[in-house]
Design a protein around this nucleic acid. Structure first.
Length: 427
RNA sequence: GUGGCCGUAGCUCAUCAGGUUAGAGCACCGGAUUGUGACUCCGGAGGUGGAGGGUUCGAGACCCUUCGGCCACCCCA
């Protein structure tokens, strides 16, 4: 097709889908509000250096997935591939870190990847971050919040929480050395990707899907044995809090996260309902990141949820949302006089009943075709303005969905009629 | 970046040893009721067969390229 088209992996969300999105967004913002988190709105574009410094130079995101381009002044900019870096930048820039901050944001992210189920080049995340709290109570709070969200969305039976601690950066460095020296001895048993990661990002070998590699890892040194005391204690406390709150989890000692800035607690909510891209929400602690980006040393922890994946999960969980008709009321009008009378009266009606969705027919057409449109719209009533009505100053209200005769009434009586029928038969 | 499957009407699909004006259902528009929807009946419109090239007397079908979709790897939300 030579006509205009969207960029690969960047999808429109059409009206029939947006009801899921709105539902999701409403539930999420309610739950976040109930924990006292405040919304922060962030730019979609940042200096490229921000992401290089925070996400990590050797990560796939930075190496090959960023949408980077030069500004007109030669500055390298990047469409954000994730939200945490920009959020940290913002709280540092605006000096919000004097006291703890609980924040959330929502919006599009961009990664140049091969599209797949649950993965697009422009996708949407909701991110939640808490700054300035070093103790594991905040870890537990964030996780409890997500658990509450799954309950609210009706998908809690379809997700599982995986939890791990990857320790302090020094503990992790010691562990990494031990892991590398172990794996280096068995280099020929490793798959190609893992061999490559031996030099770049050895911890990621832990969650390799290769059976042979996994078998090899059974004999490898365990991350848990290298944890520093504080990480160990904090992790134990986190587990204790989650147990107390009856939030089920499984400790996955192989769980490491892809971005460099994580330490201590890492977690993922996964589902088996979405094919290969089963992670629906993931995050962890990043105590060094604020300082790394030039702020005063401040602990942080956060997570991100993929909205596309949550919408898919809602659908997979058969969370069927009631179809919302486009209109409550469809206004049929015949003739110039009727059109004018209807136009004026309907504006007034909207004033009186702002919650009512009123569609006035536009574009002409026969009376019959207008009635068909009224029916197709899903409206509960047709408001009929013909030449007789226009002359008499009345209007005919015809129920389209239920029993009952149409009634001719004074224009001024319509609001009362509708108000009465709307409240009496709802719920 | 790698691999597999797939692009025919708005949607779901058919056609086909390569052979005249590419079909159906649903949706859409009009009529049967000159002011009344749904059901029914009748009629109509709608496709340069993703795009570009090639083979052939002839290509939607075969070949190549390209773009896109889906799925998986990689990686991640």
């Amino acid at each position: 097709m030579s006509t205009v088209r969207a960029i690969r992996g960047m999808h429109d969300i059409l009206p029939e889908q947006t009801c899921y999105w709105q539902y999701l967004e409403n539930v999420i913002s309610d739950v976040l509000g109930s924990y006292g988190y405040g919304e922060i709105r962030l730019p979609v574009v940042e200096y490229t250096a921000l992401f290089r410094r925070s996400i990590g130079e050797v990560t796939d995101i930075v190496e090959k997935e960023m949408y980077s381009f030069e500004d007109r002044n030669g500055e390298s900019l990047t469409l954000r591939p994730e939200g945490t870096a920009g959020c940290v930048r913002a709280v540092v820039e605006h000096n919000l870190l004097a006291t703890p901050q609980r924040l959330w944001y929502s919006g599009p992210m961009f990664r140049y990847e091969r599209p797949q189920k649950g993965r697009q080049r422009q996708f949407h995340q909701i991110g939640v971050e808490a700054f300035g709290i070093a103790t594991p109570d905040i870890d537990a709070e964030l996780i409890a919040l997500t658990a509450r969200l799954w309950r609210a969305l009706g998908v809690v039976e379809h997700v599982q929480l995986q939890l791990n601690s990857i320790g302090s950066s020094t503990a992790r460095r010691h562990y990494r050395d031990a892991l590398v020296s172990y794996l280096a001895q068995h280099r020929d048993a490793l798959d190609d990707d893992s061999v490559r990661r031996l030099d770049t990002n050895p911890l990621r070998i832990l969650d390799s899907k290769h059976p042979a590699t996994q078998a090899l890892l059974a004999g490898a040194p365990a991350l848990a044995d290298y944890l520093d005391e504080e990480s160990r204690a904090d992790f134990a406390r986190l587990c204790e809090l989650l147990d107390a709150a009856s939030v089920p989890y499984v400790v996955n000692p192989r769980l490491v996260r892809g971005l460099d800035y994580y330490n201590k607690t890492v977690f993922e909510w996964v589902t088996d309902k979405l094919g290969a891209q089963g992670t629906v929400c993931a995050g962890g602690r990043y105590d060094g990141l604020v300082e790394q980006l030039g702020g005063k040393a401040t602990p942080g922890i956060g997570f991100a949820m993929g909205k596309e994946r949550l919408v898919l999960l809602l659908e997979a969980a058969a969370q069927v949302l009631p179809a919302i008709p486009a209109a409550d009321l469809y206004v049929v009008n015949a003739g110039k006089a009727a059109e004018l009378a209807a136009f004026v009266a309907i504006e007034d009606l909207r004033e009186q009943l702002p919650a009512l969705r009123i569609v006035q027919h536009a574009g002409g057409g026969s009376f019959k075709s207008q009635m068909k449109k009224a029916d197709k719209s899903g409206a509960r009533w047709a408001l009929i303005w013909g030449e007789d009505e226009a002359a008499a100053g009345t209007v005919t209200v015809k129920p389209l969905r239920e029993q009952g005769q149409q009634e001719n009434m004074a224009v001024a009586a319509v609001a009362g009629y509708l108000a009465q029928h709307t409240t009496s038969s709802e719920g």
